[in-house]
Design a protein around this nucleic acid. Structure first.
Length: 605
RNA sequence: GGACCGGUAGCUCAGCUGGAUAGAGCAUCAGCCUUCUAAGCUGAGGGUCAUUGGUUCGAAUCCAAUCCGGUUCACCA
């Protein structure tokens, strides 16, 4: 139970007793007291004035006096400024909180929700390597899943591999024609990059063929349709769905190259999945469902044989669900997959982490599932996020402006290496420890950068200015953690671990009085206490940026505190224990918060 | 054209379920390492919260209109 909640509930009770009026505690606004006023938390009285027919001063005084008298364990004093009732929380309350939780490495994790949730993320196409946009997706999906777990849910991380479709056929055609049987091994190229090169090659050839046709006097639109290489790709898709052995063989071989490449990247960035779906396996179920829907009259057939659904009555358009040549489109397999997931896991919620450019697609998908009466429609939620853009605008693979995932990861790690070497603080590390540290910092910087902004908003990445290691960044938080751990190690050496681990027992709570906590100590305690609330909020809104912001602010406050007050050399034994406990809990929370973002923290850096 | 999303400091972003004088980081400038790690700390400058109107005790926050930017409405995925 959070302190803010306690304040709300006691206030509700106070109003009940004092005025015999029942109010909803969610209607009580409790906020942090502004630094320029005395107090920790503030009850905003305006909303209560009318129903209780009181002036701000009278209500504030009556309420304040009641709270003080009946909850002296919680409140120390109060003051009223205009319509704001500022409450000073009792120091014993803070210290009790601290001694109860400072050694709990799971503090912040809670058991308040019990749903079965699938989070689908990453979901790559197997025709090209991952790029920066995928990284935002992956970090967001992974973190969201962990946040959901941290509030008690049973979470299944899943991934749909888009391993079939016309785009895959494009790489296949290009490889057939231009590769001379080259392989990733023979060219020493990472498999996903290798296949991606042929996807690019296809588009180059396609463009050339269009130009040739236009040169012969063919209309542009016609040329795009009739280019031989495109025809070949389309034929290959038909052959694939028909199960033509040589096509299937080529397809499996090229996909296996891509999977090897992806596996390497996933391992590097710490992505993992409990269940992997392949579109090549779900699309048939989708096609069958379309067939069934056609019989039920949910879909209709055009004269050319294509199958559609008319959503104009719902304010949307008509949507194709099967091509005239009988092959499945993107949405066909998504219908199948939704059913598949539900049948196997009976999930309460089915979260799709997919970019906001597909908002319309998911609106349509959910609507189709609803119209088909599928139980899986209910829990569908499209967790959409904004695109990662360059200062010049959208990343475009055709213009070569895509920031490759492997490249940016390698670059971040390299920058971490350079900076670490410049600072020269870990000269005694062996090679293994160094590599580990560079990865921790480099990936920490990258993940934090991508997770610190509201997922819903599109974000700009400027490759010219490399990602910062100062300020609101992963390395700053990691550095704060390393500094805390350094102090804690020294204190354990000086006092012995048993002594420090039982700091609360050695600390005389009774000696506390209000003047004892310095502002920075108090600020830290206030922030530490809020952590579980932040975790719950971030989980509910699927928003890791709330964690990033919180942990940064915590680290910032700690850094000020660290500069202002000595921990190991505190002015009294009491203060030493107090600050030890504060430091210990801050470290624990930083570690937990960063873990929820998928970021490791180093003991030294 | 329809639908949806966004516009806050030079730049990148918080704040948006209405509350006190709108906050961070970067960049700029000025300070701080014989004291627990300076990837740090302290301070300064920097704002018509796109515009206009409305709702009310109170609006960056809610509503409407307008302007600007984006996404989408594919027999691509």
């Amino acid at each position: 139970m959070s302190l803010v909640n306690d304040i709300k509930l006691t206030t509700k009770k106070a109003v009940d007793v004092l005025y015999e009026t029942s109010i909803d505690e969610t209607g009580i606004t409790v906020s942090l007291t502004k630094p320029e006023f005395e107090g920790d938390y503030t009850i905003v009285l305006f909303a209560l004035l009318k129903p209780l027919k009181k002036s701000p001063d009278v209500l504030g005084n009556e309420l304040g006096n009641y709270l003080l008298k009946n909850h002296s364990d919680l409140f120390h004093s109060f003051n009223i400024i205009k319509g704001f009732l500022n409450l000073v929380i009792a120091d014993t309350c803070w210290v009790n909180f601290l001694s109860k939780n400072y050694n709990n490495t799971n503090f912040g994790k809670q058991n308040i929700s019990h749903k079965k949730i699938m989070v689908e993320y990453s979901s790559p196409n197997t025709n090209k390597p991952l790029h920066l946009g995928h990284l935002r997706n992956i970090f967001l999906g992974w973190s969201t899943a962990e946040l959901s777990k941290a509030t008690g849910n049973n979470v299944i991380k899943s991934c749909i591999v888009n391993d079939r479709g016309i785009h895959i056929c494009k790489s296949m055609i290009a490889w057939q024609r231009f590769a001379n049987n080259a392989t990733p091994q023979s060219t020493h190229t990472k498999g996903d990059h290798f296949v991606g090169d042929y996807y690019v090659k296809f588009n180059d050839e396609y463009k050339k063929e269009i130009e040739t046709l236009i040169g012969k006097g063919v209309e542009k639109e016609m040329a795009e349709k009739e280019a031989p290489i495109m025809k070949a790709a389309q034929q290959m898709l038909v052959d694939w769905e028909a199960g033509k052995p040589d096509v299937i063989e080529l397809w499996s071989m090229m996909n296996s190259w891509v999977y090897e490449g992806f596996a390497e990247t996933y391992k590097k960035i710490g992505a993992d999945f409990d269940k992997i779906y392949y579109e090549s396996q779900t699309y048939i179920l989708g096609k069958n469902l379309v067939e069934a829907g056609l019989e039920k009259g949910i879909f209709y057939k055009e004269d050319d044989g294509s199958i559609w659904i008319d959503l104009t009555a719902d304010g949307l358009d008509k949507k194709i669900v099967r091509r005239k040549d009988g092959t499945a489109v993107y949405i066909t397999q998504d219908i199948g997959l939704a059913v598949d997931k539900y049948e196997e896991y009976k999930i309460d919620e089915n979260i799709y982490v997919v970019g906001d450019e597909q908002n319309y697609h998911f609106k349509v998908l959910k609507l189709i599932c609803q119209k088909m009466g599928l139980p899986s429609a209910k829990g569908m939620y499209h967790l959409n996020y904004g695109m990662v853009e360059l200062p010049s605008g959208k990343m475009k693979s055709r213009e070569g402006t895509v920031v490759d995932a492997d490249d940016i990861v390698a670059e971040m790690i390299n920058i971490a290496k350079q900076k670490t070497e410049e600072l020269g603080k870990v000269k005694d590390f062996n090679d293994e420890e160094l590599i580990d540290l560079y990865e921790t910092i480099g990936l920490g910087a990258l993940k934090f950068f991508l997770l610190r902004v509201d997922p819903k908003k599109r974000m700009v990445f400027n490759p010219e200015e490399s990602i910062d290691f100062h300020g609101f960044t992963g390395p700053f938080v990691q550095y704060t953690y390393a500094r805390i751990k350094s102090v804690l190690r020294k204190m354990v050496i000086a006092h012995g671990s048993w002594f420090m681990e039982n700091a609360d027992a050695n600390y005389e709570l009774s000696a506390m009085n209000y003047e004892l906590l310095f502002p920075l100590e108090k600020n830290l305690l206030v922030q530490l206490e809020q952590f579980p609330t932040i975790v719950a909020e971030a989980a509910v809104y699927f928003d890791p940026s709330k964690i990033a912001l919180y942990v940064f602010n915590l680290a910032k406050t700690f850094s000020s505190f660290y500069t202002e007050h000595s921990i190991a050399g505190a002015e009294s034994e009491e203060k030493k224990y107090l600050r030890y406990m504060i430091s210990q809990q801050t470290a624990n929370i930083i570690q937990t918060a960063m873990q929820l973002l998928g970021i490791k923290v180093p003991e030294r850096m």
